[in-house]
């Protein structure tokens, strides 16, 4: 369980997080969506102990991240946005060092690493140097590494950034499987479809503030199910409809070209902030 209470972060004159309040339930996948610079990474950095908070409180499974940082860190695993593997070491060595940092006994380390590499379908790459792996494989190694100490909460900061569509979907399947095994997952992304596919609840973060929080289904139901995009004097105008029939009736009245599509979370974010997520 993740609890954030009135969390604030200041970087000199920049107010990066503004009174963030959040309650993530055990076992759920929670997505934090927002454009670059919204404060998503700062949020993750604070709860994983990488950055100090300015005010407020953050708890991981009941442990205060500022007062009991070591206990809180044991509860979570982190997959940061940037690849932070030792390029000159092998897959096994990278995971082994992580296990040592979490004080796991030698025998348990070997078994756990083999199990996880098998789970991620990269057991055959155990002795390969990281620098010889593809981007997708490095991501899978990072996820495996974050799971070696069996954390209750997994933080994924833009887990599929820079990966092609096929590999992205493969990572999604892994994330779903991890959640099915009982791990709470908190992920940040600016891929709308990633949040729609994975998350049970979504929070929109904009300029350090949570502007909305709900399930993807509720968000989209509030907007409507269908959308029509049309160009009006060099601006893209979008109209939302509850049913396809309503949308079709609207189309009949149109003289200009248009696009009929399903509503997605991008529409919700656009309606809330006037900005696009990407």
């Amino acid at each position: 369980m993740i609890i954030l209470e009135n969390l604030n972060k200041h970087y000199k004159s920049v107010h990066a997080l503004k009174d963030v309040n959040l309650h993530v339930n055990s076992g759920e996948i929670f997505a934090c969506l927002g454009p670059n610079g919204a404060g998503k990474t700062t949020l993750i950095r604070i709860v994983t102990g990488l950055t100090r908070l300015s005010s407020g409180k953050a708890f991981l499974n009941g442990f205060n991240v500022e007062k009991s940082p070591l206990a809180a860190k044991k509860e979570c695993g982190l997959v940061p946005q940037a690849i932070n593997l030792d390029q000159e070491l092998t897959v096994f060595e990278n995971l082994d060092i992580h296990c040592r940092l979490y004080k796991m006994p030698a025998k348990k380390r070997r078994i756990k690493i083999d199990d996880l590499l098998d789970y991620m379908d990269i057991l055959d790459r155990k002795k390969t140097l990281i620098k010889h792996l593809s981007g997708g494989m490095k991501r899978r190694v990072m996820i495996a590494r974050a799971l070696t100490h069996s954390p209750q909460i997994l933080f994924l900061d833009e887990p599929t950034v820079g990966l092609d569509a096929n590999i992205r979907r493969r990572i999604w399947a892994i994330i779903k499987r991890i959640q099915e095994d009982g791990t709470t997952i908190f992920l940040t992304t600016h891929y709308i479809e990633e949040a729609e596919f994975l998350a049970q609840r979504v929070a929109f973060l904009n300029e350090g503030e949570i502007v909305a929080l709900d399930t993807p289904e509720n968000f989209m139901a509030k907007m409507g199910v269908w959308a029509i995009d049309r160009l009006e004097e060099s601006n893209m105008e979008t109209t939302y409809f509850k049913t396809r029939q309503e949308a079709k009736s609207f189309i009949v009245e149109q003289e200009k070209s248009f696009t009929l599509r399903r509503v997605h979370l991008e529409d919700v974010f656009l309606a809330l902030t006037g900005k696009k997520v990407k």
Binding site: L78, A82, N84
Partner: peptide, 14 residues
């Protein structure tokens, strides 16, 4: 360059 310091900072070590 490798951001490995973050791995140590996020680990439960003093």
């Amino acid at each position: 360059y490798w951001h490995i310091f973050e791995e140590f900072q996020s680990a439960p070590i003093s």
